[in-house]
Amino acid sequence: MSKIVKPETSGIEEMLAAYVAGRLSAPLNALFAAHLELSPVNRHYVRALEAAAGAALVDGPLAPITRRDAKLAAIFALDAVPARPRVVMPETPDLLPRALKRFLGRGLNDISWKRALPGVKEYKIMEGEQGDVSLFWIGAGKKMPTHTHEGSEVTLVIQGGFTDVIGHYGVGDVAIADQDVDHRPVADDDGEDCICFAVADAPLVLTGAFGRWVEPFRKH
């Protein structure tokens, strides 16, 4: 059976550092940008790392620019864009943080969910090299099937909350499960369904009787 170890750190600090450095894949980049929108807890840390990265840029190594004069001339030929009052488009109220909306190219209202399990709906955004990227809609009090991962799985809570072997996660929280964690997230049973954005860097490998039964249906 799998071991359940509460790690010293989930690794979120390192992932945020990679976010700051611009090293995350597009889905994870969107996930952490959305985390920062929803939750204040890591904003100072991110700002501080950005300040350090900016300072390092000032004294950083150089890679010469070719055709410097032509490039400058091209820029000077452009007019300045006068600062204009930002036009705020009336947005349809939508639960999705802006960063996720931009990544998906649509809001929550325009998503066609597919039933994945009883009480669980899924919207698959992409599969492949960038990982498996999905939105999950888990009915209040419902369980996800037990599963482990071939790689890590990073999950952002957008609405509601869930609990796994590591702890409880509410709106804006990020759960990071590596391949050692055999977890079984359970959505809070408080009447509010849980909506999550999940990025798994390898296909989920379902475990347990229910999982084995379900798995063939996940691969199509």
Partner: peptide
Amino acid sequence: VMVTLWRKAELFDRNKSSVGTWLFR
């Protein structure tokens, strides 16, 4: 990035970040 600096320089706020950090982002 340089075009942005030329056209939108007025959006830079020195109280919020350094020039290095602004351009980095």
